[in-house]
């Protein structure tokens, strides 16, 4: 079962030229024009290393604006690594290096002229384990805006309310904004982290297995939220739950041992996968 890199590279351009069809279920108000399916993020021939260990091999794909892209695959297949490359979170890891390009709106994010904090402001992130700061709910949401210079009380209040509403949490917490965020339930904490990411007004939201620690009801709420979010933002999500990928995503990429095996329209991947390994994984014969 050796992987041919060439095969996988060939899939990438195929996806990018695919017209926006098969999305009648979801309204897309932001993209009125037929040809507006623009590439928000393009990954070109990306190799990635932790020290001497290579964890991504020649990955290439395109994430469309205002869509949900899911990365699936078994543990350790490199899907989280790719996600963390998209806002350079891997810079924090010692000994990490890469080769290839990652473009946001056509600009290489690894270019020395790019300010990495500005990049992370544009490309927000929600983590696997909900990690609200040990502060009040209000201060958690206001954390990012305050850093980026919003200190006016009125506009902060507005922003906090707007972000919490965007994350579907406002009605549950509006009476206890000054209480500690650690008193919230697991699902609420995760939605608070989403609200916190929304508060800095990003363009892209990366989610790294956001539901892995949540019960089914909380998971359902987050999935609903992802549907809503894609009208305003571009979403990329890592999940090892294939049903979830099928439910929430428009495009889907299957990773195996650091290689992108198949990338394309979610419906296509789940109904008529072109690669035998994808089929094995999806049908549960492998993994």
């Amino acid at each position: 079962m050796d992987v041919q890199p060439s095969k996988m590279v060939a899939t990438a351009p195929m996806v990018t030229v695919r017209p926006s069809t098969g999305h009648s279920r979801l309204a897309r108000p932001q993209t009125g024009l037929a040809s507006s399916v623009s590439a928000k993020i393009s990954v070109r021939d990306l190799d990635f290393y932790y020290g001497h260990r290579q964890s991504l091999f020649h990955v290439g794909l395109t994430i469309r604006s205002h869509s949900v892209t899911a990365f699936i695959g078994p543990s350790g297949c490199g899907k989280s690594t790719l996600l963390r490359c998209l806002n350079r979170m891997n810079d924090l890891v010692e000994g990490a290096r890469h080769r290839g390009r990652v473009e946001l709106d056509g600009l290489d994010i690894y270019d020395p002229s790019i300010n990495v904090t500005d990049l992370r402001k544009r490309v927000g992130m929600v983590f696997q384990k909900s990690n609200p700061f040990p502060k009040s709910i209000y201060d958690n949401v206001a954390y990012g805006p305050r850093l980026h210079g919003t200190n006016d009380k009125r506009s902060l209040d507005e922003l906090v309310q707007h972000s919490l509403q965007g994350a579907g949490l406002w009605d549950e917490v509006k009476d206890r904004l000054q209480q500690s965020a650690l008193g919230l339930s697991g699902g609420q904490q995760q939605r608070l982290c989403i609200a916190r990411a929304l508060a800095v007004r990003p363009e892209v939201i990366l989610m790294d297995e956001p539901c892995s620690a949540l019960d089914p009801i909380a998971t359902g709420k987050i999935e609903e939220l992802i549907h809503t979010l894609k009208h305003t933002y571009t979403v990329a999500i890592v999940t090892h739950n294939m049903q979830q990928a099928a439910r929430v995503s428009d495009q889907c990429g299957f990773f195996l041992m650091g290689e992108l095996v198949e990338f394309g329209d979610t419906k296509t991947i789940f109904t008529t996968p072109r690669d035998k390994r994808t089929e094995d994984y999806i049908t549960g014969r492998f993994g």
């Binding site: 924090l92 904090t117 500005d118 402001k121 983590f127 990012g144 916190r196």
Partner: peptide
């Protein structure tokens, strides 16, 4: 201090200094 806090702060566009000052030192 859990590394999650660091990542959470940096992921919101905070610099290392801001992360230390507002999240790590208080914790």
């Amino acid at each position: 201090v859990p590394p999650d806090f660091r990542e959470g702060s940096v992921g919101l566009g905070a610099t290392k200094f801001e992360t230390i000052r507002h999240v790590i030192l208080p914790c």
